[in-house]
């Protein structure tokens, strides 16, 4: 077992009887921003949701470690309390007001004093009175999800395409927030398709590629991004895929 903050060791994930992630290995150290790229439908979101512990994503082999704690069999809320947080790509519309969602998360993790600052940074004041994710734009959804992660004070943050549908200025802000989390020692696993967010990050570490549910490790995130942007994923369909 690795000493990384997040260590995914040979996990296979099944959803409704279909294998969506196959024997995946992946490590993210404290303070590292690791990126996970791959074509649509390759299993990136499934991997993140399996790490978070969503019940529909059944881990049928392998283990997930948070530091030295094996969280594989913990329910999602216990994984969250242990220090794993996720910014979902498409959270469901809730009947709960956005400000209540933020307040309750802040109360749970003792971050009430940071609530105002987070809301200001993420520019969400206008949404606080509305039910969470109801009628939000794509960018607003992503910013709100980043806010929930920041308020959770996690050890590991799983960010599922936090830049898709986000404008240029907001992408830069999100990059700064991700860097700030990494500086505080949060291990970040970032799923992304676009270069703009990655180019704005300072704390980049390893890069992983996922094809058909299998993972390959690139040299580092910047080289991986360069390769993917120039040549697509054809270089990763060969023997380096586990």
């Amino acid at each position: 077992m690795s000493q990384a903050s997040l260590s995914v060791s040979g996990i296979t994930v099944e959803v409704d009887g279909t294998i969506v992630v196959k024997k995946a290995n992946l490590d993210v150290r404290s303070g590292e921003i690791a990126i996970l790229m791959g074509p649509n439908g390759s299993g990136k979101t499934s991997l993140l949701r399996a790490i978070m512990g969503f019940p529909s994503y059944k881990i049928i082999a392998g283990n997930i470690y948070l530091d030295s704690l094996d969280v594989t069999n913990l329910p999602s809320w216990e994984r969250a309390k242990a220090g794993i947080a996720i910014a979902n790509q498409a959270p469901p519309a809730l009947s709960l007001k956005t400000k209540w969602l933020f307040q309750k998360i802040a109360e749970k993790y003792g971050t009430q004093e940071e609530l105002g600052k987070v809301v200001n940074e993420i520019m969400l004041q206008h949404l606080l009175e509305r039910p969470a994710f109801n009628g939000f734009s794509g960018g607003e959804v992503k910013r709100a999800e980043i806010a929930t992660v920041m308020l959770s004070k996690p050890k590991v943050a799983l960010l599922d395409e936090p830049d898709s549908g986000v404008d240029v200025e907001s992408t830069k802000k999100i990059a700064n927030m991700i860097d700030a989390m990494a500086k505080k020692g949060v291990a970040i696993l970032l799923v992304t398709h676009a270069g703009m967010l990655v180019r704005n990050l300072k704390m980049l570490g390893r890069g992983y590629v996922m094809i058909n549910g299998r993972i390959s490790q690139g040299s580092n995130a910047r080289d991986l991004l360069k390769s993917v942007l120039e040549e697509g994923y054809r270089n990763f369909r060969g023997s380096d895929i586990q």
């Binding site: 969503f54 529909s56 329910p75 999602s76 996720i86 007001k97 209540w100 749970k108 039910p131 959770s152």
Partner: peptide, 20 residues
């Protein structure tokens, strides 16, 4: 499931959704 992924157990999550 969304609220559980944010650290609320089932009972807390149900209460939050009802409150909303």
């Amino acid at each position: 499931e969304y609220l559980e992924s944010k650290g609320f157990n089932e009972e807390e999550a149900v209460s939050l959704l009802i409150r909303g």
